[in-house]
């Protein structure tokens, strides 16, 4: 039940209310718990509420780390 997904805020519709785009779909998202969130931010959405704003720098860093690890095992590339 703690299923949550990352999605980008497509627009702010009203104070505390927005629409996020997720894989081409639009989902209503309540932004009351993340007052600092702006249009274009990536947020973690759980049960229709954004519970966290993602850190793009950290996300890029994680991706870089995994690409490096994968590069060390080139024969396993699937």
């Amino acid at each position: 039940m703690c299923l949550a997904v990352p999605a980008r805020i497509a627009r702010i519709d009203a104070p505390g209310q927005g629409t996020a785009s997720y894989m081409g779909s639009q989902v209503k998202v309540n932004l009351s718990l993340v007052p600092q969130a702006r249009q274009g931010d990536w947020v973690i959405i759980h049960a229709g509420f954004a519970i966290s704003v993602m850190d793009e720098k950290e996300a890029r860093e994680t991706l870089r780390l995994f690409k490096e690890m994968a590069a060390a095992f080139p024969d396993e590339a699937a």
């Binding site: 997720y22 081409g24 779909s25």
Partner: peptide
Amino acid sequence: SRPVRAAAELLG
């Protein structure tokens, strides 16, 4: 389809 994929991930 993409919408079904999205709904599946989002709604579980």
